[in-house]
């Protein structure tokens, strides 16, 4: 079994934390992993993405081929659409539906929502609101990870919870508990 995932969003939204947690869970589960990131200038308010590949078999390419992505996990709706040519026909998009508008030519938000809604396998939520309701306004990325958990399949939601506890351990119990609350927010 393999799972090819594109994580995406806008610089500073916390997609690399999602990658770290899935990576921790996958490593503990003994899976093969490759994760390509883009560093540098794109950190600053630009689009960011990471290719995360998990498999029981050896992985060669650091990059996911066109049409080969099983799951897009996106912190922002337009950013989810950016990688459509990589998504397989059966692939799933898990995304925030709240536009992040920091450019003058951002598309019409209703047309954007309609295009997203017309796709076959889309799961979407206002993750920032859900994070606030869960009492962790900075935990939108954990809400998104919670939404994606059941589509990851190659690692279980329980393995992800353990990974969250491991990754945030050095920040203390309160931070770990808040992130677990955000993780559970989408599935209550």
């Amino acid at each position: 079994m393999k799972k090819d995932i594109i994580l995406c969003g806008v610089g500073g939204q916390g997609i690399l934390s999602i990658a770290t947690i899935i990576g921790e869970a996958a490593t503990k589960a003994g899976l093969q992993l490759k994760q390509a990131e883009v560093h540098g200038m794109s950190q600053r308010g630009g689009d960011v993405q990471s290719n995360l590949r998990l498999s029981h078999d050896p992985i060669y390419s650091d990059l996911i081929p066109l049409g080969g992505c099983d799951l897009i996990i996106s912190m922002e709706p337009m950013e989810a659409l950016r990688y459509l040519p990589y998504l397989s026909r059966e692939g799933v998009i898990v995304t925030s539906n709240r536009p992040f508008i920091n450019i003058p030519d951002y598309p019409d938000t209703e047309a954007l929502a309609a295009e997203l809604n017309a796709l076959p396998h889309v799961v979407q939520l206002d993750i920032e609101q859900a994070a606030r309701e869960a009492g962790n306004p900075r935990g939108a990325n954990m809400v998104l990870l919670g939404m994606a958990a059941k589509y990851l399949e190659i690692v279980s939601p329980e393995q992800l919870r353990t990974a969250i506890a491991t990754v945030f351990a050095r920040k203390g119990e309160a931070v770990t508990a808040a992130n677990l609350r955000a993780f559970d927010a989408a599935n209550r």
Binding site: V10, G11, M41, S42, Q43, R44, G45, G46, D47, P65, L66, G67, G68, C69, M78, E79, L81, R82, L84, P85, Y86, L87, S88, R89, G91, N102, I103, D105, Y106, P107, D108, A111, L112, E115, L119
Partner: peptide, 17 residues
């Protein structure tokens, strides 16, 4: 590579700033 989805219509570049 396999054919995936067609490119999206409602898309704008988001350069760093």
């Amino acid at each position: 590579s396999a054919a995936g989805h067609a490119a999206a219509h409602h898309l704008a570049g988001r350069p760093p700033q």
